[in-house]
């Protein structure tokens, strides 16, 4: 799978204060890539630098150093306009306009023909269940409805790349499901999505790739499987065999209610060693061997709270 977007060693700093000015590093040599036709989650704590990265990609701010490649072309001033759709976090749109008027304006601005704009608005409104509010002022729309309207404007011109800043924020469970469905369809269409979210269960459902940012540095960039199986633990359930694990270090075992042992091995090598010993013991019955896989949320928390992993990109 080739990459649509590649970011190399991108740094951004801002100047704070008026008289005594100080430079504050927002992004520190971050590198990541977004594969074509995939959804990639961009995760990080508040203030990690997610929105700043999006601003850089949109060309709103200029990086101090580093390179951005979009479709194998260098683009120092951000991704070329009209090749991507962007939805900011909690967008403000023209309060006095109706969603239809606003979306028509945005569609025309993207170079769409008027009839194509009208068709796209109807189609997307139906998909995202906002037909009812299309002709009422945006000031009368709820936060969730505005979020969906924001999503329509980002998708209506069918861009190759979609950049979504907290697309699930402010949505009810049905709304989240609806947005997830739309994002899934866009990936099926061949679009690449990079989105930030604090709802990691949604990210896990939606994407194959994940980028984790902490204090302006990328701490992980890869597939979700790589991240969640990185520190996989193995669990062996058996009857008898206490002697087998007595001499193997870092193994924990506890007796369950049905007189079975639940033995947890921290890695594959220890699992193999333990299994060999257990199989050699005649009185032992092995009930099951399972991977104790982490969820994305657990893996994320482990990664950002483990001081030993914080500086490694």
């Amino acid at each position: 799978m080739t990459n649509l977007l590649e970011v190399h060693q991108l740094s951004l700093s801002i100047t704070t204060g008026h008289i005594l000015q100080r430079k504050k590093t927002i992004l520190d040599r971050i590198s990541f890539s977004v594969p074509r036709g995939s959804a990639t989650a961009y995760l990080g704590k508040n203030g990690a630098g997610k929105t700043s990265t999006f601003r850089l990609l949109c060309g709103m701010v200029r990086a101090d150093s580093g390179e951005i490649y979009f479709d194998n072309q260098p683009c120092d001033h951000g991704i070329p306009p009209n090749r991507f759709g962007f939805m900011p976090e909690q967008p403000y749109f023209y309060h006095n306009l109706t969603p239809r008027a606003m979306l028509t304006g945005f569609g025309r601005l993207s170079g769409m023909r008027l009839d194509a704009v009208r068709f796209a608005i109807t189609q997307w409104a139906e998909k995202l269940h906002i037909q009812r509010v299309l002709d009422q002022p945006l000031s009368a729309c709820s936060k969730g409805q505005i979020q969906r309207i924001g999503l329509v404007q980002a998708l209506m011109h069918r861009p190759d790349f979609i950049l979504l800043d907290e697309p699930m924020s402010g949505l009810d469970p049905m709304g989240r499901e609806c947005v997830q469905q739309v994002m899934h369809e866009e990936v099926q269409r061949g679009a690449s999505i990079l989105f930030s979210s604090h709802i990691l269960a949604d990210a896990e459902n939606l994407c194959d790739h994940v980028i984790i940012l902490e204090n302006g540095k990328t701490t992980f960039s890869g597939t979700i499987t790589d991240l969640t199986t990185k520190d996989d633990q193995w669990q062996i359930r058996c009857r008898h065999g206490e002697a087998a694990w007595a001499s193997i270090p870092n193994i924990s075992a506890k007796k369950t209610a049905n007189q079975q042992w639940l033995v947890t091995c921290p890695d594959r090598a220890q699992r193999d060693m333990l299994l060999q010993r257990l199989l050699a013991m005649a009185e032992v019955t092995i009930v099951s061997v399972n991977t104790k896989r982490k969820t994305l949320e657990q893996a994320f928390i482990d990664l950002v709270s483990d001081p030993s992993k914080k500086d490694g990109a």
């Binding site: 601003r55 949109c58 060309g59 009209n82 759709g85 967008p91 023209y94 601005l109 980002a154």
Partner: peptide, 17 residues
């Protein structure tokens, strides 16, 4: 200023050459 703070400006600028 409202467009800048509400980030509508970003949405507009991502569409203009």
């Amino acid at each position: 200023q409202q467009e800048k703070e509400g980030r509508t400006l970003y949405v507009l600028l991502t569409r203009t050459s």
